[in-house]
Design a protein around this nucleic acid. Sequence first.
DNA 1: ACTATTCCCATTAAACTTATAGGAATTAAA
DNA 2: TTTAATTCCTATAAGTTTAATGGGAATAGT
Lengths: 125, 125
Amino acid sequence: MLTRLYDADEAAKQWSSARSIADAATMSVKFLEQILGELRSAGIVKSRRGSSGGHALAMAPDEVTLAKVIRLMDGPIAPLACVSLNYYERCEDCKEEECGLRRVMVQARDAQLSILEHRSLQDLI
Amino acid sequence: MLTRLYDADEAAKQWSSARSIADAATMSVKFLEQILGELRSAGIVKSRRGSSGGHALAMAPDEVTLAKVIRLMDGPIAPLACVSLNYYERCEDCKEEECGLRRVMVQARDAQLSILEHRSLQDLI
DNA sequence: ACTATTCCCATTAAACTTATAGGAATTAAA
DNA sequence: TTTAATTCCTATAAGTTTAATGGGAATAGT
């Protein structure tokens, strides 16, 4: 769905309307607007109001890593909060240095991030 | 919590009561019983009723991969249902062969599984 | 002024997670 | 054979999160 936002010629600054994207993805415009709002306030998408307004990518496609988008949409990538880089929360009654589960979960997190941090919108086409 | 189940001498078949485990983990016995029930019906844990009954691992600690346990407790490991090995669900209106997102998510899934399928309870101690 | 569009906020509806509760079945031991 | 400890089964409540809808104000082009 995001890929539609950079089909347009960058110089020409084509703004895709929420309506047109929603139609293509068969989802409600209102719901889509909400998602685009999140993307905008995260700086991934920029928008222009008014009669022939719309939405467009705010940065180059290869700068939008999947990790960024997923964190924004789905929250933490890490399987446990105590190994999350961006949404860390400590477990209660846990000595992190000694926790074997945590040690393994860090490995799992890093394995996944090694993919998601190095794949961008560019790679989705 | 699971690690407590194989502290005991395997030959002596020590059965840990739900109560004793719950105390150590500061959780309600009833809640723990529910979890142990799931583990039992998945064949990871076996139980014995009656006066001096309890629970014990049903297989060697190194056979209990984290992938097994996580799938049982948390469901799919894959970040999207359409790339899940055990809980696959097709996306609607999607030609999987052409879907760039899916291609990347498969990579992310495999990266994570390469850890979780090769780490067992044994590795948590 | 008129119209198409984003933008913001509030609300509902559905789903899932977490936890609690009661009691039947089973077993060992007294 | 009675008693006590324990698993086992099922229902349900409470809480949280997610998905979706809706109304209307702000903006910009014509």
